[in-house]
Nucleic acid binder design. Structure first.
Lengths: 111, 111
DNA sequence: GGTCTATATGTCGATACGCTAGGTATCGCT
DNA sequence: AGCGATACCTAGCGTATCGACATATAGACC
């Protein structure tokens, strides 16, 4: 129920994360920030959604993780898109386009 | 995992059902058929998803049910959109537009 | 030195949704 | 009599997201 806050990631989270990582290797916290920023605050990924999602994607071999220092000298886990992840991302993008087109078809129906 | 079949209703099912019923009162089985037809076979609502969704919407006061005869003389439960359901549908449409616009924003990012 | 905020990662339990797989019954066709 | 399509339903499973919590460090401010 969208009481109060109305953000719902309806299964698009994996797609969005993969896309952000495709822009360049990044760590979880920064991925969430970029997502929020690019989407003009529409997407606010909570930590309880973010980290399990990243682990899921890593387990499936779509992302690779490596501990590195950030610019501020702190440790963070940087994720990189694997070849498999790139393929999956491309497929998911097509999938999303088909889905949104199908929804648009239904919503446009007036008869 | 979308192996084999790739249909996924990711939380849009309520929206789609409300929209179909908004076209005119209808019963469950026919709603699923119209949805499949309008979406050019993209959406194939399984009965295990369909009926619980209808009950959910009825419980929330967004749909009203009434047993009536179909043209073929058989009983079927016809659903009608309530005033509350109409409001909810309108809000959900706006919500969907915002969501798909936000996803598009992310997917369009190239930098 | 102590406190606070932002950064950064993680887990746990609850909740909700869609799917698979079953079940019931009626109608029309062959 | 048998079959497929119509029409309704439930139970159990997997899984994704959320809310709340836990942990730790760096920098700023007093």
């Amino acid at each position: 129920m969208p009481e109060g806050k109305a953000e719902y990631l309806k299964g698009t989270l994996d797609l969005l994360i993969l896309k952000i990582v495709a822009l360049g290797p990044n760590h979880g916290y920064a991925i969430a920030q970029r997502l929020q920023q690019i989407s003009k605050d529409f997407f606010q990924v909570h930590q309880g959604s973010l980290y399990p999602a990243l682990h899921r994607l890593e387990d499936r071999g779509l992302l690779e993780a490596e501990w590195k220092d950030t610019e501020t000298g702190r440790d963070a886990k940087f994720y990189t898109l694997t070849r498999k992840g790139r393929k999956h991302l491309d497929a998911e993008v097509v999938n999303w386009e088909r889905l949104s087109e199908a929804v648009a078809l239904v919503l446009r129906t007036v008869e």
